[in-house]
Simulated scan of single mutants.
Amino acid sequence: MTLKKLTVLAMLGIMYLALPFFVQAQTNSAFDRGLFVHKTDTLPYRILFPKKFNPTQKYPLILVLHGAGERGSDNEAQLAYGPKLFLNDTIRQNYPAIVVYPQCPKDSYWSNVNIDTTSGKRIFRFQEGGEPTRAMNALLGLVDQLLDKPYVNDKQVYVGGLSMGGMGTFEILRRKPKIFAAAFTICGGDNTNNAEKYAKKVPLWIFHGAKDSVVPFDHSQVMVDAIKAAGGDPKFTVYPNDDHNSWDDAFAEPQLIPWLFSHSK
């Protein structure tokens, strides 16, 4: 990493070595490392800046929430799915944006959901309301911090996620519906009673595999129905032969990024 890049990142609030809470980015990754810290809340994240980034300009912000298998503190595992889309040269040229991948701690969860495995199958019970999890509380703090940056366009803030991250996407929309211009969820779910909080405020594109053996397809179907009943008009894409890894097809959708960028507050 060059001195020039270190200087620019320091200006942006992504500090390296000067504070113990931040670690130096790996030179073999386009995603820089950062750590949100506020009181007892901490949240590692990776951040991708546009090519030819100019801190005097404003850029859209995209938050991507990972699944349960990528939880931890290595600030690496959360990049397992999706980065290729955002690193695509055509996407970066035509849709310059700041992309952030936060990492949920191993002992937490993005959303308020109880998972019952006593029957041998996963049964998801999504809560209506309730206090945010420790991970969600830190994520909300990180979003506020990012929105304070002069180079973030607060009219074009997007969020999406897969599996646990899809559930977290619904959750953060319920808590902060006025912030997001559009969102996508992949093999996620929510309590249908929460839909009215964001149905008319945030355009949604929902993806799911019809053969999902981990998070049943029904969890997306009932949310589509609930959002429509509450006055929303979500896009819904079902992959008839996909199991839980429907994110492979969702991130390959050529219209996903153009669709996100077509919306602004």
Results as ranks from 00 to 15, higher is better:
residue 69 G to R: 02
residue 177 P to T: 13
residue 238 V to F: 15
residue 223 M to F: 03
residue 247 W to A: 05
residue 72 G to I: 10
residue 103 Q to V: 08
residue 218 D to L: 08
residue 182 A to G: 03
residue 117 T to G: 08
residue 142 L to I: 14
residue 186 I to W: 04
residue 24 Q to K: 04
residue 61 L to P: 13
residue 148 D to A: 14
residue 75 N to P: 04
residue 40 T to Q: 05
residue 70 E to L: 07
residue 171 E to H: 05
residue 144 D to W: 02
residue 165 G to E: 11
residue 259 W to K: 02
residue 88 N to F: 12
residue 257 I to W: 07
residue 40 T to S: 14
residue 35 L to T: 15
residue 190 D to C: 07
residue 34 G to R: 00
residue 159 V to G: 00
residue 182 A to R: 06
residue 124 F to Y: 01
residue 159 V to Y: 00
residue 168 G to L: 03
residue 166 G to T: 09
residue 224 V to K: 07
residue 207 F to T: 04
residue 50 P to I: 07
residue 248 D to W: 15
residue 128 E to C: 04
residue 109 Y to S: 13
residue 244 H to C: 06
residue 24 Q to H: 08
residue 26 Q to L: 01
residue 241 N to C: 12
residue 109 Y to A: 08
residue 104 C to I: 06
residue 80 A to D: 10
residue 30 A to K: 07
residue 87 L to I: 10
residue 224 V to P: 06
residue 217 F to S: 14
residue 88 N to T: 02
residue 243 D to M: 13
residue 68 A to R: 11
residue 231 G to R: 01
residue 35 L to W: 04
residue 164 M to R: 11
residue 164 M to C: 15
residue 215 V to L: 12
residue 139 L to Y: 05
residue 83 P to C: 08
residue 65 L to N: 04
residue 175 R to L: 12
residue 185 T to I: 07
residue 228 K to G: 03
residue 120 G to D: 09
residue 136 M to K: 10
residue 221 Q to M: 14
residue 134 R to V: 15
residue 49 F to E: 07
residue 122 R to V: 06
residue 156 Q to M: 05
residue 90 T to W: 09
residue 105 P to D: 03
residue 94 N to H: 07
